[in-house]
Design a binder for these strands. Structure first.
Length: 708
DNA sequence: TTCAACCACTT
DNA sequence: ACCCTTGGTTGAA
């Protein structure tokens, strides 16, 4: 008998059960094998079940009759289909489900790592102790939990590979290799020598993680080496695809997954930029999904995984496809229910003595506090539902991490990692609400979705009433935040009593985002009398600038325009009060005027003028192609492949087709459409400056140009 | 010049 | 593998 202890790095099916990799406490990386049975279920009318029984009889380890709970329809008689290992489950299931489509199928598509976590209590990235005979595991015990706040640090060996240029824009020539303190460049040609050098680096460093730029979409597509730690495996390749999410088409490049070690392509990872590697690991840890999966999938996949794990633990069947349709509604109910979050239009203009207060994780808190779940009838009195059960630990962990951050000195080296982890958990929480209303979610139900928004409106109105009772004026409310004003209240402490009272009465924690020196709520651009929600900017008492909805926040604002807009804001932020900010308006105008001059003189670098936009469809499917589609067409004519959901970078140019696409080769600076950029800049400047004067910014600019 | 269709983005 | 509106551009009358 051998004993091992360490972290579970990787887990995948093999011929007889599962293979997994352990990062041992003594630094060894070992591969072990374990017997592992898997079960899935079918339910339905007896005749169909008998047919499926006969079909499966000689193909599986065991067939039994059991009773299990379906979240929506209650206890059901089911046929349990047990296999001796996960290998072949997918094939068998698609065969039998194809033959007997009338049956309801359960637990048929649960990721292996979740089954393993549910059965053994050991999750990926978790610590465990093992007893083995040879390389066969006989006993496995968890040594920690994904909910530990400060897990022992995982001593990962990371190898970084990055190209000298974006292969979408130019032909890469060299590859940078980084490992611990080593850092060197390799030539990409001849490929044979590159491969020999890489194989030797892999052997020498034996990394747990290969972190690349464009590894998915380019490098590992091109190379013919096997970068796995498990040499018996081929890499797993997934094709590029586009899908619809968050109301838009998203393009995912092809993927290369490894066995025994991980590959993450930073450029093909969903939200890597938001929370980095720390965040990805945190999401993988709490969701139970593999690191390579979690990095490339949306947080929605993580939430689904967590709900599946909860279902496995509490013995609820996981439907193969969602069973529940929306229950019929009267027209009146439809109209009443079809509302999102509460919005109270802002009072357009500049304001002082204003605080912004936010409910913390409002929607998830509502789901937990009011027991919102498909099976609970959204009644608090019922036993805790599946959705709140899977959400509560997440919510509590994030809160605890945030508390740890605020207890530390901001310069403490642990802060960054804690913040990344907290941001990663936040995304999981945010997406959970959307999933309640998502038609293909396994555990969604539109009534629950609506119950959440109904509660959120109720709570916000409650907060408004409390504020007004306490003598504050509410200037603006938006979904989970409110802006309150009271003369004499200029410091954070002045709002404590209000915060305490709201938290006490609503039962949801609320925090002060900050107190503004001044804040501007902007009107609609088409009609200056009409306020628009959530379009504002302001300066907090500590000098920090906050802005929402203006050009700076948009992805398709060229960096140059965004930069000037930010410079204008920073200029105004130098004033200690609104009165002083007003005095700085001419200086801010001068910044804009100088920027115009730079542009006309051709001194703005091309990269600063690039607009990036996402294509929602194939280039040829546009009826009136926007600039990004025309840029895409140019690229396509040059032989690039352009897929829906892909992001295109382009510069506005003179004449037809009016754009130049990044990746086309040489750019002629004389082609820049100066008028177009000039207008974009004026618009961005006007977004900030118009509110400071009664006249149009454009008029003042004309005057100011005379001075400059 | 006006207007409706179309499109991308934000929260 | 999340739902739903506003600001801006295009292209035809």
């Amino acid at each position: 008998m051998n004993e091992y202890s360490g972290w579970m790095l990787d887990l995948y099916e093999d011929e007889t059960g599962v293979s997994f990799w352990l990062l041992c406490d003594d630094g060894q990386r070992v591969m072990l094998r374990m017997d592992f049975c898997v079960t899935f279920y079918a339910a339905g009318v007896a005749a169909h079940l008998r047919g499926a029984w006969r079909f499966l009889q000689d193909k599986v380890l065991q067939l039994t009759r059991e009773t299990r709970r379906d979240l929506f329809s209650g206890v059901r008689d089911v046929m349990a289909i047990k296999l001796s290992g996960p290998a072949g489950l997918q094939d068998l299931f698609s065969q039998v489900a194809g033959q007997f489509p009338e049956l309801d199928w359960y637990d048929a598509d649960i990721p292996l790592s979740l089954r393993f976590a549910a059965q053994t209590g050991v999750a990926l990235l978790g610590r465990c102790r093992l007893s083995c005979e040879g390389n066969r595991v006989r006993e496995i015990t968890p040594l920690d939990s994904p909910w530990d706040l400060e897990p022992e640090e995982l001593p990962l060996r990371i190898l970084e590979l990055s190209l000298d240029v974006d292969p979408g824009l130019a032909v890469p020539r060299r590859l940078q290799v980084k490992y611990e303190r080593a850092c060197y460049w390799l030539d990409l040609e001849p490929q044979r020598s590159l491969e020999i050098a890489l194989v030797s680096s892999l052997r020498k460093f034996d990394p747990d993680l290969i972190l690349t730029d464009y590894g998915d979409t380019w490098l590992f597509q091109k190379l013919s080496i096997n970068p796995n730690r498990d040499p018996a495996r081929e890499v797993l390749r997934r094709k590029a695809h586009s899908y619809f999410s968050y109301g838009q088409v998203v393009f995912r490049g092809a993927q290369v997954h490894l066995f025994g070690r991980w590959h993450i392509d930073k450029r093909n990872a969903m939200l890597y930029g938001e929370y980095g590697l720390e965040g990805v690991l945190e999401q993988a840890r709490v969701s139970g999904l593999g690191v390579q999966e979690m990095a490339r999938k949306s947080p929605g996949a993580g939430i689904t995984a967590m709900q599946m794990l909860t279902a496995l633990r509490i013995g609820v069947l996981v439907p193969f496809v969602k069973q529940q349709a929306e229950s019929p509604k009267t027209l009146e109910e439809l109209i009443r229910a079809d509302k999102g979050g509460m919005i109270y239009q802002p009072l357009v203009g500049l304001h002082e003595e204003v605080a912004q207060i936010d409910f913390a994780s409002m929607y998830p808190s509502i789901m937990v506090n009011f027991n919102i779940s498909p099976e609970t009838g959204n009644q608090q009195a019922n036993p805790a539902g599946l959705v709140p059960l899977s959400l509560r630990p997440l919510l509590e962990k994030r809160l605890a991490l945030k508390r740890m951050v605020s207890a530390l000195n901001p310069r403490d080296c642990r802060v960054k990692s804690l913040k990344s982890r907290s941001a990663a958990l936040k995304w999981l929480l945010v997406v959970c609400f959307g999933y309640l209303g998502y038609k293909n979610a396994r555990f969604g139900r539109i009534e629950s979705h609506e119950a959440v928004t109904a509660w959120s409106r109720e709570l916000l109105l409650q907060a408004k009433d409390i504020s007004e009772d306490m003598g504050y004026t509410v200037l603006h409310m938006y979904v989970d935040c409110l802006f309150v004003q009271k003369s004499g209240c200029r410091l954070a402490g002045d709002f404590n009593i209000l915060l305490d009272e709201i938290a006490r009465q609503t039962g949801i924690s609320i925090s002060l985002d900050g107190v503004y020196r001044w804040v501007a709520f902007l009107p609609s651009k088409s009609d200056a009398r009409i306020p628009v929600p959530n379009r504002y900017f302001g300066v907090f008492i500590d000098g920090e600038i906050k802005y929402r909805g203006i050009e700076l926040r948009r992805h398709d604002t060229p960096p140059w325009v965004a930069g000037v807009q930010l410079a204008v804001l920073r200029c105004l932020a130098q004033g200690a009060s609104l009165a002083e900010a007003r005095k700085l308006v001419p200086a801010a105008c001068a910044i804009v005027a100088r920027a115009h001059k730079e542009l006309r003189a051709g001194r703005v670098p091309m990269q600063e003028l690039v607009v990036t936009q996402r294509l929602s469809r194939a280039v040829q499917d546009y009826k009136s192609p926007p600039p990004a589609a025309r840029a895409g067409q140019l690229l396509q004519e040059q032989g690039h492949s352009i897929a829906p959901g892909q992001t295109i970078g382009f510069v506005y140019t003179l004449g037809r087709p009016g754009v130049w696409a990044c990746g086309l080769g040489a750019f002629d600076a004389r082609m820049v459409n100066v008028k177009r950029y000039s207008d974009l800049l004026d618009r961005a400047a006007a977004s900030i400056l118009d509110i400071f004067g009664s006249g149009e910014f454009a008029d003042k600019r004309g005057l100011l140009l005379g001075f400059c």
